[in-house]
């Protein structure tokens, strides 16, 4: 399959160009914090419940809270119906997401409790773990849970010998390599790095750079989304007739 034509990718993007990203927070009424993201054709909903009491009690830790992320791919999110329920892949993604978020959330502030994060992939189009993680960190911030920083993620990869950022489905399926990366933007620390496929040392460096830059762009968008959502609470004088 031809993935690169006249120096452009299938959807007309440059090699270092992200897909369109749309973010929204506080979308769910009953959740403490929530976020909805559209990243290209990916559609992801993240919800945070808690901190709340942890059962079974033997899992409680009096020094810190437990963070529990659940990544779930909806049966209708992919082309062929996915069998519902957790499988090897989603259990793994739940685990790496939990570990990535644990490094920023101040769990020690809520002893004996649990913070539940649910990531629901409504429509998948490659790079869902990056979208899920980005949405989850927005939802945590929206829930008012203390964090050291946000987490921003982006992927890079290799298609037909070229290193490109933010692979879409065709590129992921027919490309040579996929490299999702999540960072703490303030320090530039890496909290998630996986690789599916093969890259040489130089290619890896280039892919890493591209993914890092992409993640920084995503971080700027996260920042604007959160600041925008807060403007509602500080609007001048409360002049509109909301009630």
């Amino acid at each position: 399959m031809v993935l690169i034509k006249d120096g452009k990718r299938l959807d007309g993007r440059d090699f270092d160009e992200l897909r369109d990203v749309k973010m929204e927070v506080s979308v769910l009424e009953r959740a403490v914090g929530s976020a909805y993201m559209e990243w290209g054709k990916n559609k992801v909903m993240a919800a945070v419940y808690g901190p709340r009491e942890l059962h079974p009690k033997f899992l409680q830790d009096p020094t810190k809270a437990l963070l529990r992320c659940t990544y779930n791919l909806a049966p209708f999110s992919v082309e062929e119906r996915k069998r519902p329920g957790p499988d090897r892949r989603s259990v793994e993604i739940s685990k790496v997401t939990t570990e990535a978020l644990s490094s920023v959330v101040m769990l020690e502030k809520f002893p004996n409790t649990v913070i539940d994060v649910f990531i629901e992939i409504l429509q998948a189009d490659a790079g869902t773990r990056c979208v899920g993680l980005t949405a989850a960190s927005l939802a945590l911030a929206d829930a008012g849970i203390p964090m050291r920083d946000l987490v921003a993620a982006c992927s890079a990869g290799k298609i037909q010998g070229e290193i490109v950022v933010d692979l879409m489905k065709e590129e992921d399926n027919y490309g040579e390599c996929d490299l999702p990366l999540a960072i703490i933007p303030r320090k530039g620390e890496v909290v998630l790095l996986q690789m599916d496929g093969k890259l040489t040392k130089d290619e890896f460096k280039k892919a890493y750079e591209l993914a890092f830059k992409g993640a920084m762009k995503v971080y700027e968008m996260q920042k604007n989304t959160l600041l925008g959502s807060m403007k509602r609470f500080v609007g001048e004088g409360g002049n509109d007739d909301g009630n």
Partner: peptide, 14 residues
């Protein structure tokens, strides 16, 4: 209303 506009300046007057 106070909850909605909690951090507004001059909320008490309003």
């Amino acid at each position: 209303r106070i909850e909605r506009y909690a951090q507004t300046r001059g909320l008490t007057d309003k």
